[in-house]
Each structure stands twice: as structure tokens, then as C-alpha cells.
Computed example of a mutant assay.
Amino acid sequence: MRNLFVTALVFLLAAFVEAPGGLTKEERESAIKYFTETGQALADEISSLTENQLKWKPSDSVWSVANNVEHLAISEKIIFDWAMSTVKTPADPSKRSQLKNTDEQMKSILVDRSFRVKTQESFQPSGQFGSVSAAMVEFKKRRASNMEYIRTTEDDLRNHYAETPFGLADSYQVLLFIAGHTMRHTLQIRELKGHADFPKN
């Protein structure tokens, strides 16, 4: 009888233990779709550009298409590493009430080009990949690795956090930051292509 009581008590206590913040199937699928769509949008946007078009810029203070692509290849790793660093901090479910944005709001903010953030030196393009095609190879390799992490991770991505330029975000939202950032710069590339002086070939 005592053993039966102990067993029942264990199950009762377990019911009150907060479940880990592992991703749901829907969260995984949503993130994978977002990463896939934004990566493809970038590839499509630059696919037919000539070397002259890739390197053109309207002024010295504005990035070229090539600069944007290199920046994205660099960012794909740096932002992912940032997300992973948040997972190493103690989980704190009580902070969820402090999140500033929903997942969808975070995506919208990231592609709002009226909101400008100064790029840190570590993200600055410097020609390190040698060519746009090489930068895209690196981008795609890093993107595939990041997507595999999202598909398979059991990390608690909802109860770890980071301060972002847009307010407190959880680790899952920091990962969404990667794909949203890709779309942000794809839109910047579209702006360049729409410039009146953009080369015809």
C-alpha cells in the first residue's frame, strides 16, 4: 500500500512540473518554411545579375548587391551563434511576460526598412569570400546547417532570452531573426535594382 501511495504521489507532483520549452511541430515547420522562403528569395533576386550589376552602388556609403550577399553569409553564422549562446544561460519561464513581440511581429519589424540599425564591425563585408558565388555557397551551407538544427533540436528555445534592438526576444525568435534579416537585405537588393541608375547589364 505504501509503494502504491508513493507512486501516486510521484505522478501527482509530475503533473505540476512545467513542461520543457521544446519546440512544437508547428513551430518547427513554421521556422523551416520561413528559412526556406527567405533563402530562396535571396537566390532568386541575384540569379540573373551580371558582375557589373553585383558590384554597382549608387554611392560609397551604400552597399552593393555583392556587399549585401557577403553580409548575409557572415550573419548566418554570427546570429546563429548568438542564439546558441542564449541557450547556455539559465532558463527562466517567468520572463516570458516581458517579451516585446510575438513571432509574427518580430518578422514584420525585421523587414521594416524604415527602422535602421548600425551594422557592427564583425558583420561588415570585406571581400572575404572572394566572389558573390562563393559567398552564396557559404550562405547556403550555413543555412542548411541552421535548418537542420531547427528540425532536430530538443533545446528549450522558449525559456531562454536575448536583448535585441527590438526588445527582449526568446531564443526561437532570435533564430527567426536570421531569416528575417535575410529578407530585410533581399529587400535592400530589390531597392538597388530599382534605382534609376542601376546598370542594364
Results as ranks from 00 to 15, higher is better:
161 Y>W: 07
125 P>W: 02
176 L>R: 09
140 K>F: 01
191 E>N: 09
109 I>S: 00
96 R>N: 14
123 F>K: 07
169 A>I: 08
83 A>F: 05
144 A>S: 04
195 H>T: 08
167 G>E: 05
121 E>I: 06
94 S>P: 10
71 H>S: 09
75 S>W: 07
56 W>N: 06
174 V>I: 10
68 N>W: 13
79 I>W: 03
186 T>Q: 03
81 D>S: 09
120 Q>S: 08
53 Q>M: 14
153 T>D: 12
101 N>I: 01
176 L>H: 09
107 K>A: 10
138 E>Y: 01
53 Q>D: 15
90 P>A: 13
100 K>G: 01
81 D>Y: 05
102 T>C: 08
163 E>H: 06
95 K>P: 09
133 S>V: 01
74 I>Q: 11
157 L>W: 12
79 I>F: 10
64 S>C: 12
56 W>I: 07
110 L>Y: 06
139 F>N: 08
54 L>W: 15
61 S>H: 07
182 T>A: 04
87 V>T: 15
177 F>Y: 11
118 K>Q: 08
182 T>K: 05
128 Q>V: 09
65 V>G: 05
69 V>M: 11
147 M>Y: 00
95 K>W: 06
170 D>K: 00
158 R>T: 14
80 F>Q: 09
57 K>T: 14
160 H>V: 14
154 E>N: 14
189 I>M: 10
96 R>E: 15
183 M>G: 07
119 T>R: 06
89 T>Y: 15
157 L>N: 11
91 A>L: 14
132 V>I: 03
153 T>K: 13
133 S>C: 02
54 L>Y: 14
155 D>K: 03
195 H>N: 12
160 H>M: 08
137 V>F: 04
179 A>D: 01
119 T>P: 03
170 D>Q: 06
69 V>W: 12
135 A>E: 00
119 T>F: 11
137 V>S: 05
80 F>R: 13
164 T>I: 00
176 L>Q: 09
196 A>F: 05
141 K>M: 02
85 S>Q: 15
146 N>H: 11
118 K>L: 02
72 L>A: 04
120 Q>R: 07
66 A>G: 12
170 D>A: 03
92 D>F: 03
60 D>M: 10
115 F>H: 02
174 V>A: 04
74 I>P: 04
86 T>G: 13
104 E>Y: 08
154 E>T: 15
76 E>G: 03
156 D>P: 02
56 W>K: 04
155 D>N: 10
185 H>V: 09
88 K>Y: 14
67 N>L: 10
76 E>N: 10
188 Q>D: 14
181 H>N: 07
192 L>F: 06
117 V>T: 02
97 S>N: 15
135 A>M: 00
114 S>H: 02
75 S>T: 12
66 A>E: 12
168 L>F: 01
72 L>F: 03
179 A>C: 02
132 V>S: 01
167 G>L: 02
185 H>F: 10
157 L>H: 13
136 M>Q: 07
83 A>H: 05
128 Q>I: 13
96 R>S: 15
177 F>W: 12
110 L>G: 05
72 L>W: 02
97 S>R: 15
140 K>G: 01
171 S>F: 07
149 Y>D: 07
88 K>N: 15
